[in-house]
Every structure is written in C-alpha cells, then in structure tokens.
C-alpha cells in the first residue's frame, strides 16, 4: 500500500488536473495542505482499518436488518417506509446501523484527529511549517477540513453501499423521501463525527504525547457511551418526585431528565437520527394520552421530522464549533519550540 504513495503524491503536487491550462498560477497553500492531509489519511493503515471496520458494520447490520425485515413490515402496516427499516430494524442479535454509527462514529473521529498537531510537533515538522509564509491557523484548519472531507467520503460511501445492497437484497427501491431521509441521516452522522474529531484535535494540541491524546479521547467516548447513562440514572433515582406528584410536575421532571441525557452527543445523535429514519416518531418529549388521543397515526413529512430534530442538530453543530474554537485558541497561543 505504501509503495505507490510517493509517486501519487508527486503527481498531485506537481500538476493539478482540475486547473489544466491555468496551472501556471500556483495553487493556494491552504488547499495544498488539505490535499496533503487527505492523501496522508487515505494512504494510512489507520484509514484502511477504520474503513474495514465500517464495511463489516454495514454488512452485519444489513444482515440483521434483512432477517427481521419481514417481521418489522408486518408489525407496521400504517407506513410504507420499508427501505428505511434497513437502517433501523434489528433481530436482536446485532444492533442496527444507526446504533453502530452512534457507537463507532466517535472512534472514527478520534482515530483521525488524535495526533493531528502533536505528531507534527514530535516529528519536528511543525516549526518548519510555521517558518513558511502561511498563517498559523491554516495548519489547524487544513487538518480539520481534510479529516472532515475524509469522514464525509467515508459516510457517503457507506450510505450508498447500504442503499445499494439494500436494493439488491430486498428488490425495493427507495422513494425520493426515503432517499432524502437517508441523506439527512448521513449529514447528521458527519456532524456528529465532526464533534468527536474536534475533540480529538483539541486533545492533540493539549497533550504532547499522541498516546495520551488518544487515550483522553477514548476516555471521553467511553464515559458518554457507558457511564453517562448510569450517572444520570443515579441522579434520577435520588431526585425523582413522589408518585403522588401532579401531572405537570411529572412532565417537567421528565423533561429535566431528558435534557440531562442530552448533554451526551450520542443522545442528541440518536434522537436526531431515529426521528429522521423512523417517520412515525412525532415527538421526542413526554406526551400525555389526551394530547395523543386525536392524533392520526401516520408518518410525519420530512420537513416536520427535520423541524423536530432541529434543536438536536443545532446543538451538535454548536458543540463542534465550540470545541473547534477552544482548539483554535489553544493552538494560536501555544509557544512554538522545536519538539518540546
């Protein structure tokens, strides 16, 4: 794999096939950097392993969806979103695709970002880069853009693969609405992984050792995916209102618990994606029987589903931006010494 690398990169650096005749003007340094970072990623073992892992996931979740599709369709006669079931249905032996993404997405983000800055530092290339006439933030911006591009490609490939294999195995093509729902699902996944990518980049600036940075990222990931719900449960048990509390109190308490859970990005992600992929979900908060009594059981249109998860989407994007902002400030303030 590594053998074809130098030549490939040389070609990329020398001639831009896109600009063709206009190649006399040198490319903008920022895109030169992005291009190099992307090349570094896709030629690395790390990326191959991640891609392999995600491919396995795709196949496994498709298998589990196929084996339960019959039952899922039989249960749900009201809607016709059979295709989306591929992403959410499970026979219990393996989690469905959306759960896999929610679980493994952080791993992708962390794996692509944990050594972004500290590897440049320990290789001694950071001070050499900074001595070139480029703004300092190009380095961190290029790293982020390149990794996000790689993640985008990866998610799109997986999404299309899932759809393609789904069509082949079920023989049912997706309706345009289903296509758009899957599209938005992929978009949310990219933003979600972006949050973890930024977290990893932040750790890579903060910690000089790549191992420390990777471990910190993994610790945060494990905390949110394993321990966070446990902690929330403990809080819930100790603060739950008595059984005789009136309905409004119960509802507001339920809302409080839900908001507590929403501190975790994976909670936001699963709320957003479930709503997108299961059109029958009408609300994410608590709902009383009387509120639901006159509702017509039926799927929400795409626009309404999007509206429902808009806060979740905004929060995820905001988290990504905030973490990136912190990394940016950390990086700009950091003293540059060679290898220290």
């Amino acid at each position: 794999m590594a053998a074809f690398l130098p030549e490939k990169i040389s070609i990329l650096f020398r001639r831009s096939p896109l600009t063709g005749e206009k190649a006399s003007r040198a490319k903008h340094p920022f895109w030169v950097m992005v291009r190099k970072e992307v090349m570094d990623h896709i030629n690395s073992w790390r990326f191959m392993i991640l891609l392999g892992l995600m491919l396995l996931t795709t196949i496994a979740s498709l298998y589990t969806a196929m084996s339960s599709l019959q039952r899922a369709i039989a249960e749900d006669t009201a809607t016709s979103f059979v295709f989306l079931k591929l992403f959410t249905a499970t026979d219990g032996s393996l989690p469905p695709f959306i759960t896999f993404v929610s679980l493994l997405g952080p791993l992708i983000g962390i794996a692509l970002g944990f050594d972004a800055i500290n590897s440049e530092r320990s290789r001694g290339t950071l001070s050499r880069l900074l001595a070139q006439p480029i703004p300092r933030d190009y380095i961190i911006n290029a790293k982020f853009v390149a990794s996000l591009l790689v993640i985008t490609f990866m998610m799109i490939i997986l999404g299309l693969l899932m759809m393609g294999m789904g069509i082949l195995t079920t023989g049912i093509p997706p309706t345009p609405e289903e296509f758009w729902r899957v599209f938005f699902f992929l978009l949310v996944s990219i933003v979600y992984i972006g949050v973890w990518l930024n977290l990893a980049i932040m750790f890579s600036i903060k910690f000089k050792q790549a191992a420390t940075s990777a471990l910190s990222g993994l610790a945060v990931w494990l905390f949110f995916s394993l321990f966070f719900t446990m902690i929330v449960n403990i809080i819930v048990e100790s603060t739950a209102p008595s059984h005789v509390a009136d309905i409004n109190e119960l509802i507001s308490y339920q809302g409080f618990v839900q908001n507590l859970l929403r501190i975790s990005p994976s909670q936001l992600f699963s709320e957003a994606t479930t709503t997108l992929l299961v059109p029958t979900i009408r609300t994410l908060g608590p709902i009383t029987l009387e509120q639901a009594s006159f509702a017509i059981a039926g799927p929400l249109p795409l626009g309404q589903s999007l509206l429902l998860v808009w806060p979740q989407l905004t929060c995820l994007a905001a988290a990504a931006f905030i973490i990136f902002g912190i990394s940016y400030v950390l990086f700009m303030k950091q003293e540059v010494r060679s290898r220290s």
Binding site: L5, I9, R15, D40, R128
Partner: peptide
C-alpha cells in the same frame, strides 16, 4: 532551519521540498 529539523518521513526528500515550495506559492 530549526534545531532538530523534521520531515514527513513517508514522503521522499524531493516531495518534501516540493511541498515546501507549494506552501510558498512557487509554481510547480
């Protein structure tokens, strides 16, 4: 030239130079 200069080890010497040149907006 910093103390203990480092290069991208997985690239060739020539490619490292070309990368620096590209960052300096030198035509290919």
């Amino acid at each position: 030239l910093p103390d203990e200069v480092g290069f991208y080890e997985n690239l060739s010497g020539l490619d490292n130079l070309l990368y620096t040149a590209a960052l300096n907006r030198i035509e290919a």
